[in-house]
Design a protein around this nucleic acid. Structure first.
Lengths: 245, 245
DNA sequence: TTAGAAATGACAATGGGATGACAATTTTGT
DNA sequence: ACAAAATTGTCATCCCATTGTCATTTCTAA
């Protein structure tokens, strides 16, 4: 079983991934750390751009518009602190996450004053880093999620964890709710099962893909007028699912 | 029928390929290994340059600008380690893949510090080597982080997996999408069916070529104003296809 | 210029693979 | 321990990628 997965993983390397969650710009001069970061973010379904120094980092930032910037504080030429400020001047609400060695955590406050949204001290666990980056991205996205989300004749109440279709309310289980929330946050977007498993279920958890299908089924039964002919939770054959309000 | 395929494969071997994905520079002094490497990369549709020592390797690198460098660590005159660093100094983001005998895998870490992007220990399988080289090349190539790609009156939305021609949107299937994405990443370039099958389908064998043709046909029907007279997805008779924005 | 060969376009049909549906089992929460 | 929920297993169904066939276009060699 584990063998099968490894095989799949190897073969997946062969062709580029069908879909990613977006691009993250990493500015880091140590090749080893570059490798680690690349692997970490790739596994979480992000595209990654790596710059070895601040100059190329700034160029990359201008041409590609990344979702977030991960910045090592010790860099040649330009100091990480200046860079951090520069990013914030260029685009005030791009999330910037700073990597720093334990010894240099002199002053968290200073960092945050420079505009960093968060910081992670080396050594860090992959989980910690991605969690903070994802949190920063989510935070920045939209002026906070509304308490209610409306589409068609449906209403989702994020506080009560309920949904209502044309008046009558239905309860949602924890997973159904998480899944639905993620769909509303990424409306119109094709989401592969891999991405859903990572984002909704958790990072290192690999149930068979029937799991996702079943949860989609449940959501359809609760929200779609005709679950057999879904109009909002669409199947994209060969790719995954897509939510259209 | 199977005979046809064998025939195609054989003929592909003894005539120079019409088109390749790019050039790979191999620095290796053992003639037998040179032969092996040449065969491996040729089969995967790369051109190959072989240098027997570091000096000529560096010269070739300067004149030809290869996609990647495959470097044997044991070389006369110049040590492989120095070479590796030199390449990285000349062009910081050229992928360098190191070949090393099992005994010298004393420290992978050192290698990566020297700037190598990956390493493969001898003996290796053809599959392993090409997979790592291709992965390194793909990594270095900019991810298409742009969400939409525009050309003529068309818009491709990479997140939604849709395309729009003069306003009206069409859904793309997974294969159509991958193929189109690959075309946009290699615009203006002639791409043979072999290359497309390798890069988009991930096949290393030869199904009948009608497969590619049909997918092209589908794309044309969805994107071209007059599918019979394509203006963007052009046929290059006797060679393959080319995408011109 | 023209005929023959080769490559490609077009389209229908079929087979394989992906998804839907639901039941059975395991896990979780109270 | 019990109920609810989540995961797994199985089978039917449907979609689309592949393939086969034939018409059409393009190239090449008389």
């Amino acid at each position: 079983m584990i063998k099968d997965r490894e095989l799949v993983a190897e073969m997946a390397e062969d062709t580029a991934p069908l879909m990613t969650l977006g691009t993250i710009l990493v500015i880091e001069d140590d090749p080893r750390m570059q490798k680690v970061l690349r692997r970490i973010f790739t596994e979480e379904h992000y595209s990654i751009l790596v710059a070895g120094d601040g100059q190329t980092g700034l160029e990359m930032f201008r041409t590609e518009r990344p979702l977030a910037v991960v910045l090592d504080l010790i860099l040649p030429h330009l100091s990480g602190r200046e860079l951090c400020q520069t990013f914030k001047n260029l685009s005030s609400n791009i999330p910037v996450i700073v990597l720093s060695a334990i010894t240099e955590v002199v002053d968290k406050v200073l960092l945050l004053e420079l505009g960093a949204d968060d910081y992670v001290t080396k050594p860090f666990s992959p989980r910690e880093l991605t969690a903070r980056v994802q949190a920063a991205i989510r935070r920045q996205r939209k002026p906070t999620s509304q308490e209610v989300y409306r589409f068609a004749d449906c209403e989702i109440d994020f506080k009560k964890m309920t949904a209502a279709r044309s008046g009558s309310t239905v309860m949602l289980t924890a997973h159904e709710f998480k899944l639905l929330k993620f769909f509303t946050e990424n409306a119109e977007r094709v989401l592969t099962r891999d991405i859903l498993l990572n984002e909704v279920w958790g990072y290192n958890f690999y149930p068979t893909t029937r799991t996702v299908d079943n949860q989609i089924l449940k959501l359809r039964q609760k929200l779609e007028h005709d679950p057999a002919n879904p109009r909002h939770l669409l199947t994209i054959y060969g790719a995954g699912y897509k939510f259209v309000p």
